[in-house]
């Protein structure tokens, strides 16, 4: 039981990172990036290629995969997203990013086939034994990685000039434009950052789960649940929701049955949204329009 809570918190950290990327993109651009799940899988495959074919350590490989995913994000935003009009933007973005997800899934299927693979390293198979718990190193390392990257995002948002322009765009796009923020550039870089974190998320996910090109669907439904529960556009909310949900899921799996765990995830979404439509942590008017 306590083991389940600890596991939930550790994996929750990684989901929080992936969800933070998603919610940041929504906040700044009103874009719901349904492709975030497949980006995670793509990130995992990049790590797979680097470690299996080039023998690069999974964590060291992030120095390559994160910038690579940043570029993927920037290109996707530039080619597909920036062409969407202002009208019905959110709805159109779901269609556009869904199309992107299908394309990437198809390409991954061609290159890697549908066979499940997983990432391997010494820290994937070994575990800490503390207070009678059984903690795989990768869970701990993954959590630390997520915490560091989330901390970096926080510092970027609150301590830099660029961060100020992101927050301004998030709160009022046209006012941001009027004080001289280049909102289009902010949007592109934000999209890049939001996608870059999937490289880290994908690596940890791939080291703790086996995956194939279809894994993106399961991931995106979880990530969307987390982001909605946390209140769309709220990073703090996404962190809280990610940890709550993963703990809940793990506890249910132990106490009840693993079969029920994913169900609980979505049941919680329905219950919370019918009570608080703005999400667990959402504020009713966080965004001025």
């Amino acid at each position: 039981m306590i083991q389940a809570v600890v596991d939930g918190v550790l994996t929750g950290g990684v989901y929080a990172l992936m969800a933070a990327g998603l919610t940041l993109i929504f906040g700044v651009m009103d874009i719901i990036n349904v492709a975030q799940g497949i980006f995670v899988v793509l990130g995992a495959y990049l790590s797979y290629v680097l470690s299996v074919h080039l023998g690069i350590d999974l964590f060291v490989g992030l120095l390559i995969t994160m910038p690579a995913m940043f570029v993927v994000g920037v290109v996707v935003q530039w080619v597909f997203i920036s062409r969407l009009g202002e009208r019905e933007r959110t709805a159109m973005s779901i269609l556009a990013t869904y199309a992107i997800a299908i394309m990437i899934e198809g390409i991954l299927g061609l290159v890697f086939s549908d066979n499940y693979v997983e990432l391997n390293a010494w820290y994937v198979t070994r575990s800490y034994h503390v207070f009678g718990f059984y903690l795989p190193y990768i869970y701990v390392f993954g959590f630390v990685l997520a915490a560091v990257l989330l901390g970096a995002i926080y510092l970027m948002l609150y301590k830099t000039r660029f961060g100020a322009s992101v927050r301004a765009s998030l709160q009022d796009r046209s006012a941001a434009r009027l004080v001289g923020v280049n909102v289009d550039r902010v949007a592109t870089i934000t999209f890049g950052i939001g996608v870059a974190v999937t490289a880290a998320g994908g690596m940890v996910y791939g080291a703790t789960n086996s995956f194939n090109p279809n894994t993106g669907y399961d991931l995106i439904s979880r990530l969307l649940t987390i982001v909605i529960l946390g209140g769309l556009g709220s990073i703090g909310g996404a962190l809280g929701a990610a940890v709550c949900m993963l703990v809940l899921e793990d506890v249910v799996a132990v106490v009840w049955s693993p079969v029920w765990a994913p169900f609980v995830f979505f049941a919680a979404l329905v219950v919370v949204l019918s009570v608080r439509p703005t999400g667990l942590f959402g504020r009713s008017s966080a965004r001025a329009q």
Partner: peptide
């Protein structure tokens, strides 16, 4: 058109972004 989640001072400073 103020940035609601920023403080008053941050808002005014944004005027000189």
């Amino acid at each position: 058109s103020l940035f609601r989640e920023m403080t008053v001072r941050e808002n005014v400073e944004m005027g000189a972004f």
